[in-house]
């Protein structure tokens, strides 16, 4: 069987890329190997651990279980797209300040999932945060500080929102 190539166009972290890909190419491999965006990690490769989580049209997805062709036309955001103008995103700041990471392997996925959670629920309870990151595993089991890091970011983002509304 001749290998089919499909032309896809994806906007990743604000930059539009057009590429010819094999239909079986997973989104995580496209990001890591074609675009060299290695911040998105491959953990379990079986849709369990969440290390490969990125935003696709604003929704957190496990990029080891999305075909690149399924993402044709989509807007993708990875950990590399979180900082703006050299300033860390409040989630990145929160993981730093609250020691939300130990080995750091799960962190990009945790942050991307948390970004979606806070976009939909700016003031989550602890239970909502824990429920919200139930698809992300931290094998250092540092969940307490991960929850604190997300709470820190939620606070920061709300303050920023209020300041913007007040000015």
């Amino acid at each position: 069987m001749a290998t089919q190539k499909v032309t896809v166009t994806l906007t990743v972290n604000g930059t539009t890329h057009t590429a010819e890909v094999e239909p079986r190419l997973l989104l995580v491999h496209f990001l890591r190997e074609h675009l060299n965006l290695t911040g998105t990690h491959i953990g379990c490769d079986t849709t369990h651990c969440g290390a490969c989580t990125v935003l696709m049209n604003g929704r957190a997805v496990k990029s080891c279980t999305v075909l690149t062709v399924q993402a044709d036309g989509a807007t993708i955001k990875t950990i590399e797209g979180m900082a703006e103008n050299g300033q860390m995103h409040p989630l990145q700041e929160g993981f730093h300040v609250e020691h939300g990471l130990q080995c750091g392997y799960c962190t990009p996925g945790m942050i991307m999932r948390a970004a979606e959670l806070l976009a939909r629920n700016p003031d989550p309870t602890e239970e909502e945060i824990r429920w919200g990151i139930s698809g992300n595993l931290c094998r250092c089991t540092g969940y307490v500080n991960i929850v604190k890091a997300i709470q820190y970011a939620a606070r920061k983002l709300r303050e920023r929102e209020q300041a913007a509304a007040g000015s």
Binding site: T47, G50, T53, R59, A60, V61, K62, T65, V66, R113, E116, L117, G132, S134, G135
Partner: peptide, 9 residues
């Protein structure tokens, strides 16, 4: 069903 990311797809 599964987890939030899986439910998104």
């Amino acid at each position: 069903i599964a987890d939030p990311q899986v439910r998104n797809m």
